[in-house]
Design a protein around this nucleic acid. Structure first.
Lengths: 125, 125
DNA sequence: GTAGGTGCAAAAGATTTGCTCTGGC
DNA sequence: GCCAGAGCAAATCTTTTGCACCTAC
């Protein structure tokens, strides 16, 4: 357990957004100067393989990460702002299982992202 | 309309899988020798912007493409073989709309992929 | 004839890796 | 002291781009 790893893990734990490797590097650098992007990538990979981190791709060309929390959720991405909103829908979850089963598969994972634009609500402005 | 573009469009129309740019290049090269990977990328981009082609990312680091067919569908990826199976589930589709609406969003698109392993069926072997 | 398209090679951006050095235990 | 792990720079992989040349209309 080196200081670099400690800092990276801390940064990820403190983030409630979905930072890319570069973001993690930037945030970690503020705390611990002696750190390199390569180490961030290596540590992120370790954490991912250990099942601690989840990798996402929201379509902007780089991987985004978040800690696996107790509650599973999917994401809605605001196409105008890039904001990421988490959602849970048990009905969709079980339908997915059913679809896979019908096709002769056991589900090992899934990726579900919604992309949308905010509905303008005049009374909220 | 150049011969290169004609060939690329033809290759895509003839493919019922989800080829990456490199695959399109390989298939097109067999038909038309005078073609470059750069042209494939440029043409693919044009077709995507024209709404003729859909871009996917199945998690292997390169983009995969398919022609937009009349019927919308999502994908189940066999994690053992890489095989891609298309599926349609209207119930999930409308639940997605509902989820977005509840969060105050109008859906502009979505990405939904299931990852699974084939359930072994002894009587089928 | 010319504007848009092509090929080639180099650039760009994200991620990985080889190698040497270092710091935790 | 040893060895896993760090830093740095170079390599890799996919995709994009600059530029000179070409070709469809």
């Amino acid at each position: 357990m080196t200081s670099q790893r400690r800092v990276i893990v801390q940064v990820l734990a403190d983030s409630d957004d979905h930072p890319a490797a570069e973001d993690v590097y930037r945030r970690a650098s503020r705390i611990e100067g002696r750190i390199s992007l390569a180490t961030v990538y290596r540590t992120i990979r370790l954490l991912e393989e250990a099942g601690i981190l989840e990798k996402h791709d929201f379509g902007d060309g780089r991987a985004r990460y978040e800690e696996i929390k107790r509650t599973h959720h999917d994401h809605l991405i605001d196409v105008d702002t890039g904001e990421v909103i988490e959602f849970v829908n048990e009905e969709i979850e079980s339908l997915q299982e059913a679809v896979a089963r019908e096709l002769g598969y056991r589900l090992t994972g899934h990726r579900h992202e919604l992309y949308g634009t905010r509905i303008h609500k005049p009374e909220q402005d």
